[in-house]
Design a protein around this nucleic acid. Structure first.
Lengths: 341, 341
DNA sequence: TCCGGCCATGTAAGCGTTTGCATAATTCCG
DNA sequence: CGGAATTATGCAAACGCTTACATGGCCGGA
């Protein structure tokens, strides 16, 4: 048992026979100190197992090298992939990641502070419901912020978004190659959700380009859940409207829910129902029949957010910027031409 | 645009006409100060929008209220569920969570410090390969540590584990109700993995209780991946050894891989092959046929780890303790008696 | 009325860094 | 070979907070 008081910069300084200033300099601006002294100091550091105290450092530099990421929820393939990308990039850039699921009571938020404000150097948020408090707080704590959900340039924030339209168009056109526009459906997530809105719009446009004006029942909204997919699927099969249709779902889970109900009612996939998911979570490739889906580069989104955040930290007065990432149709079994048997 | 220098405790003190000590006291030991003064101070705090500077606080108190969690990997239903449980519990206890996937190069580790050491108040680790460096470092930085993988009491650490044996026994017995012991298989993850070892052992014991000594090919090891399941499944179907068998897999993904290959070779599930996964990730319930599986309370594991960590922080000299969480067989379609048709 | 206690508050010493400024040592050039 | 320019180091003042200790006001009991 050693592990008493961890050694401080003062200990190192004494041990090396220099001043604390010099030690600090070899740590931060190695080139300011003579090679010989630097060597002595390094040696002392090594011998004492010295690690700078991050609190003291932070007190001076106002930097923690910790980035926050706030997501509506943490679990599931979707968010976890995002997180993974963010974490990797953060590490690459010399930062750590503080996570926070926003799925906490308002009371908790108050208590612990919206998100370790004051501690973190920047924050990436993905917000279910735009929360004015958060933005105000961020703005006047001048906390670097990047928004993951929607384009917030006009609000003065950086954002990273996904180019929903190309992927959606690709997917819709793929469906149209097999089924008539009047038999195509878009089954989205929440109506208020930014991505769902864009996807719905792009779907509608693509139908329009095929000279068809979508009926209201062709573009519907619910939640991003298996259950919602099942519900819609059940209703549709009950009224026998699914046979021969083409469906683009708002995410992979919804697609899977629909697929379940369709199979249960005896529909053959993809012959009698073509279905495409969204996001390309691992779920899509793990399931049978494998789900066609529009790939969203989730890890890349996370990484881009971190990158944007760090750029802004380094250059606080840069104009707000939005980076947009491409999406792309991945064709698997649930929509493709049936295998020749 | 205000947001200049954030106000300090000194500003508050001046504004309220008291000393900084008093302000500090109303923040930390409200009962030490007269109600009237406290009110004045609170008012000043509110008016100035004062937030204590966490660096300065940490410098004095040596507490950051940040807990680290290091996982082999961050993504996938398994880890993400664990993380979610941990995060929720941390919040409940007034802490934040710093995540870190250990899937980073050694070089990175060096650069950023294994995990914000010195910053965090405690660390929960789940380690693929027992990493002596980590343990040594933790020990002599006297960093509170809880291990998620295995029982490390003898090393002097707290740990939280899962009671693999009951769940495994249940599952195996369930299989034995349908198939003879010589037709049962355990397809585990890595041989070195703690859980896989325990599960394999419990499987073997249960067969033994049914008066059967498992052949080597009945207990096999690979990786925790779909691909490994597929590989094993392919080999087994090729040699036609799967028909009429019962399989317990090391996790849900392996089970799914096997299931795919079985279906592809025309085996009917569960009539001709009974298969049970492990963990009860969402995957198991999302897939069709729905996967029977041994439920591991992942979120609870995460929460328990955080709880243990905080307890140790509050009471550093307590004897190392291990908490064990129960597992339980969940019967779904992949192993149950076929539906009466 | 006086004095011992208690309660509320203030004073000031750290906590471990970074960094502007001063100083000492070295180099350079004419 | 002298002084200016340059380089290497030290000194000490922050940074914003907590807390041991000191102090002064007030109360009650004798």
């Amino acid at each position: 048992m050693s592990a008493h008081r961890p050694s401080s910069i003062q200990d190192v300084a004494s041990a090396a026979g220099v001043s604390t200033a010099t030690v600090s300099r070899v740590l931060n601006n190695a080139d300011l100190v003579a090679p010989a002294t630097a060597a002595k100091v390094q040696e002392a550091i090594r011998r004492l197992g010295y690690k700078p105290n991050p609190f003291a450092q932070g007190l001076m530099t106002r930097k923690s090298h910790v980035l926050g990421i706030a997501l509506p929820d943490i679990h599931g393939e979707f968010y976890s992939e995002l997180l993974r990308g963010a974490d990797a990039e953060a590490r690459r850039l010399g930062y750590h990641m503080l996570v926070s699921s926003e799925a906490h009571s308002r009371a908790e938020q108050e208590r612990t502070g919206s998100l370790a404000f004051g501690f973190i150097d920047g924050l990436a948020v993905m917000i279910a419901e735009p929360n004015d408090d958060l933005w105000r707080e961020a703005r006047d704590s001048s906390l670097p912020l990047v928004v993951l959900d929607s384009d917030q340039r006009e609000r003065g924030f950086d954002s990273v978004v996904v180019d929903n339209s190309t992927g959606t168009r690709e997917a819709t056109e793929h469906l149209l190659a097999f089924v008539k526009p009047e038999r195509c459906f878009f089954v989205g997530g929440p109506k208020e959700n930014f991505d769902t809105q864009q996807r719905g719009a792009a779907f509608q446009e693509t139908l329009a380009r095929a000279h068809w004006t979508a009926r209201p029942d062709q573009i519907v909204h619910g939640r991003y859940s298996l259950a919602w997919g099942q519900m819609w699927g059940a209703e549709m099969t009950r009224t026998d409207k699914l046979k021969g249709a083409g469906v683009l779902a708002g995410n992979d889970e919804i697609a899977l829910g629909i697929l379940h109900m369709a199979q249960e009612s005896g529909l053959r996939i993809p012959d009698e129902l073509r279905i495409i998911g969204f996001d390309d979570t691992r779920l899509a490739s793990l399931v049978r029949p494998a789900l066609s889906t529009v790939r969203v580069p989730l890890a890349e989104v996370g990484a881009a957010a971190i990158r944007a955040l760090v750029e802004r930290i380094d250059e606080p007065d840069r104009a707000p910027r939005t980076v947009s990432l491409a999406t792309k149709l991945i064709i698997r079994e649930s929509s493709a031409a049936p295998k020749p048997t």
